[in-house]
Design a protein around this nucleic acid. Sequence first.
RNA 1: GCCUAGGUGGUGGAACUGGUAGACACGCAGGACUUAAAAUCCUGUUCCCGUUAAGGGAGUGCGGGUUCGAUUCCCGCCCUAGGUACCA
Length: 927
Amino acid sequence: MEYNHKSLEKKWQKFWADHQTYKTSDTHQKPKYYVLDMFPYPSGAGLHVGHPLGYIASDIFSRYKRLKGFNVLHPMGYDSFGLPAEQYAIQTGQHPAVTTEVNINRYREQMDNIGFSYDWSREVRTSDPSYYKWTQWIFMRLFDSWYNKESDKAEPIETLIARFVASGSTGISAVSDEDVLEFSADEWKSLDEEKQQRELLKYRIAYLRESTVNWCAALGTVLANDEVINGVSERGGYPVEQKKMMQWSMRITAYADRLLKGLDTIDWPEPLVEMQRNWIGKSVGASVKFPVPQLNTAIEVFTTRVDTIYGVSFVVLAPEHELVAALTTPEQQTEVDAYIEKTSKKSELDRMADTKTVSGAFTGSYAKHPISGQDVQIWIADYVLAGYGTGAVMAVPSGDQRDYVFAKHFTLPIIPISDTQNIEEVADPNKDGKYINSDFINGMTYQEAVPALIAKLEELKLGKAKINFRMRDAIFGRQRYWGEPVPVYFKNGLPYLIKEEELPLLLPEVDKYLPTESGEPPLGRAKDWKYEDQYEYELSTMPGWAGSSWYWFRYMDPKNEGNFASKEAVDYWKAVDLYIGGSEHATGHLLYSRFWNKFLKDLGYQNEEEPFRKLINQGMIQGRSNFVYRVLDDEGRGTNQFVSYGLKNEYKTIPLHVDVNIVHNDVLDLEKFKNFRPDFANAEFVLENGKYICGSEVEKMSKSKFNVVNPDDIIESYGADTLRLYEMFLGPLEQAKPWNTNGIEGVYKFLRKVWRLFHDAEGNFSVSNEDPSKAEFKALHKIIKKVEDDIERFSFNTSVSAFMICVNELTELKCNKRQILEQLVIVLQPYAPHITEELWALLGNDAGTLSYASYPVFKAEYLVESEFAYPVSFNGKMKFNLSLPLDLDQKAVEDTIRAHTDVQRHLDGKAIKKIIFVKGKIINIVI
RNA sequence: GCCUAGGUGGUGGAACUGGUAGACACGCAGGACUUAAAAUCCUGUUCCCGUUAAGGGAGUGCGGGUUCGAUUCCCGCCCUAGGUACCA
């Protein structure tokens, strides 16, 4: 029988499904291993060959771990709330749940064709009420918690209330809004319910506050910082503006330090760790107040270089700074107004693009230097950002290039503060010298000056050491329909949680998926949707990242109705051991998930500080577009003549995208091309060597470029095992690479060779029970060791090559010994599960037992090199191979070499200086 | 600008802690089998010199360095990809 991938793969996929072969055991005798893929958003376009790359890798790893005796949790689900389904609903009126269901079914079918070993009984969907019930439940815990800086963790809000009752706000160290009140216990008790709630809201981890948000008018919703790329929306690329709105936010900043520290404890790719570090953006410095006596206030600035404080020659505020109006003198009013007018017109994009032009305006007012008391001018300029630090900076032109340029432009003083500074042409921020022009720190070093200044500022009550973070609290509301409803209703304008037993708060039906006429979110359209028939529900829904910020817990115990997951399951599965997904989630999903994970730990629902121990980013698979070259006539119009790539320079041509599915190895299938588009039906071709060669280019995979390859088509021609092996063979997992099928034949050929090892020339199954030879054992043991090493370090591409070498060797040896082949089947199973199941059964084993067979143990004795010929070089130049017995010790080897006639000849009378051994081998002889 | 990763034949890529660079595969060229095609198998394939060969030389982005020996380590530069950007 020939290798027939079609019937064989269908058969085993059905067997696995019918027998629930990959259902994860709930008995906890075996050691556990948790392998997770980032679950997909089920889009309407279905999967292309790029999507499964990471899934194949994780599947290989899961299967390998099962063979190694682990109880493996390897689940899959869908991040099924999201914008595209809603946009589609707006256009067609079809309920997003309906399109989502259709898309999920298609995804599932495509995934099943690839032969993954997911435990589908644990599937989760974020848009399913039984799932989002627990997303809402976690939101309630976040709302009902505050962050205690003393214990450095989140605690139930009751503990805060108890402290207010006992001793008021004194001694509380919490992460909170800036404007919290100070009160005694009695004052707290005298506050009415509404005032108490208003105060508590300033401490809650999920809170409602008026804040500046990224508003995207085209999408009709606010966006989180990570959803805005270069000033436009990540989805759709629509313009984004800053707007003040009442918004739900998450106090992720409370976790900034822990999110940063945790990065040192996890095994993640360095670029990703670096991205999160930058995103969190910790800077250590000081906050300093510049008094403004005439207004009886002070301008607070943040600086990382408090040591340069004597170099301050002016202070700069962001144009949006709240003190600007009060500070502007009548004489400067026109100029300042004009400047504010000008900068507010600039879009976010312009402002980012234009960092060269120096602009600003003098307010006319002066502040006092906090230590010297001298007057310093107060300016406004748009190089100072309202959103970072305090929205004001102390300008030190001698040490900061932006301040330097500003000072030169407006002819402001530039004061050198170090004896090593060279400020002829640019600012010099070096910290190496001794201070000058700096009063009591003159002559000190940087290390001495900083603590001295901090002490002085504290004494004056005008400054203190401070750590600043770039990361902002995460905006949590979306003015959209297709998301989790926030389980909150409003009484007297204040938010209250619904009761826990009322969960899930179901997403109500609406007539249209658009905002209401009065500009409320789509949920405002829901009829009679009131809490206890009288109170307004929150009308915004949760953002896309809510459901994905805890989903790995749900897989542990997906059907649990009383808990997000049972204590027992959470204690057993702990954290995800291996997480595979794209790096595009670096500052979104991966940061939010770590945040929620830490929060759930603080409240004692689980014990792991980090959710994902090891993370791998699979590289994106790009499309490889093919082109045909249409010949143009004298007027530049397209003719129906097409010229092959190599000859195109002899004609005037225009390149046209051609469907990559009718091109093989860059050779165009002429008949299929004629059917590709009606206007190509009469196409004529100028061929080279009888073939039409297409040009090619690497681009993003997209329908419009005709370069989308559906895995189903590859499976149809070559089978799922070939697809799996080929995607791994394509190159290192983490590297981005274009899809191209030029080498797929080689992989397919390999599988046929495997098949033939088990069959005689007539195609009949034929395996011998004889004892294998040493050479056969050696070939087998080499592959066992190689595959184990490769999988452990995620180098899947090299083991595909190793398999090819092994099978070539066994074919050469005409090996059909059961002892060898049975073990080969086990080692190959993670990569090519279908063909190996078939061969496993043919060998007489019970169907389905292969997935849990024992990974073969490597026997060292056969791996010993049989040849003892070593390359020998003299002074690094290769000369000849030297044959020596292996069992000699180093001294004996040296003596033998010195006496060896070939060596003597090469020495030509010269003395041997040194013989270099590496791992017991002679590598080099130095003369 | 800054951070991170990378640069190896015609192509994808291998070489794991410094030890015969180019494994394996594709492509290409030649051959066997075949009426023919497909399939399969064999041989060759980094570049240059050498008619074949024996042999020699160069070679992992560029220029230096350390070392008996460098794709691997160090210094300087160039290029590519990803991230980030007036962050005080």
